[in-house]
């Protein structure tokens, strides 16, 4: 499958370059700092599952940031370097190009996520948590990161410059995050709609708490597919520019 060829090349570029290492190192450092100061360093006594919930709250946020930072270069850099021509004259459809870019970024997010495993391990050492809670929490983090990565790929497909792609993706992601605030100040049915659209509150909290819900899985799958579809349409439209 050509999408895998594209993903393999992108993953190799991430691993051979230094920017991905800097992003991952910076995120792990900041996350570790906040985990120690905020999650483990709280003055009041808490149950281990509450500490774990706080960890996933942090991990979700940092995974979103990593997704935007990693994807802002994916298609925009190919365009800026002129290598996009190789992809666009290949037999890969525009959808396969987008999928390949998303898969490569997700592989990097998965590596980053795997490197955070020491934090739940520390909670397990100092308390008692269900392994299922850890697994479900990480599934939630990957779902959230998957949707954000799709937004990042869309931004990267829209702009030639990485910075513009990053700013667009950040603004769009924050808009989707703060939708829950909108839901609190509007009346039904808009409140329900805004609440459902919010990328974090209603859909990520169950994962944070160790609950695997079908509606949240459907939501993240839909959001990811929708933004990847939009990115594909952007690439198709560029053949008409």
């Amino acid at each position: 499958m050509t999408a895998l060829t594209i993903a393999r090349r992108d993953l190799a570029a991430y691993l051979h370059g230094y920017s991905a290492y800097i992003i991952i190192a910076a995120i792990l450092f900041l996350q570790g700092l906040m985990f120690n100061a905020w999650v483990l360093g709280a003055s009041s006594a808490r149950y281990s599952h509450e500490v774990l919930e706080q960890f996933f709250y942090l991990d979700g946020g940092f995974a979103m940031a990593a997704a935007i930072l990693l994807t802002m270069r994916s298609i925009a850099e190919e365009r800026a370097n002129g290598t996009e021509v190789l992809l666009r004259t290949s037999t890969a459809s525009d959808g396969q190009i987008v999928l390949g870019k998303w898969l490569a970024a997700m592989a990097m997010i998965a590596i980053l996520t795997a490197l955070t495993i020491y934090m739940p391990a520390l909670i397990m050492v100092n308390g008692k948590v269900a392994l299922a809670h850890v697994v479900v929490g990480y599934v939630g983090v990957l779902c959230l990161a998957g949707a954000t990565t799709a937004i990042g790929v869309l931004g990267s497909a829209m702009f030639r410059f990485q910075l513009a792609a990053g700013i667009f993706s950040t603004v769009l992601t924050i808009t989707l995050v703060v939708m829950w605030i909108l839901s609190e100040i509007t009346d039904p049915p808009f409140a329900d709609l805004a609440s459902y659209m919010a990328i974090w509150n209603m859909h990520f909290t169950p994962f944070q708490e160790g609950r695997l819900t079908l509606s949240s899985l459907v939501y993240y799958s839909t959001v990811t597919t929708a933004f990847l579809y939009l990115a594909t349409r952007i690439l198709e439209a560029r053949r008409w520019e």
Partner: peptide, 15 residues
């Protein structure tokens, strides 16, 4: 897509 398998393209700046 079938057409692209039949063409080879070198732009002015090689990709």
């Amino acid at each position: 897509e079938a057409l692209r398998s039949r063409i080879g393209y070198l732009p002015e700046e090689p990709p």
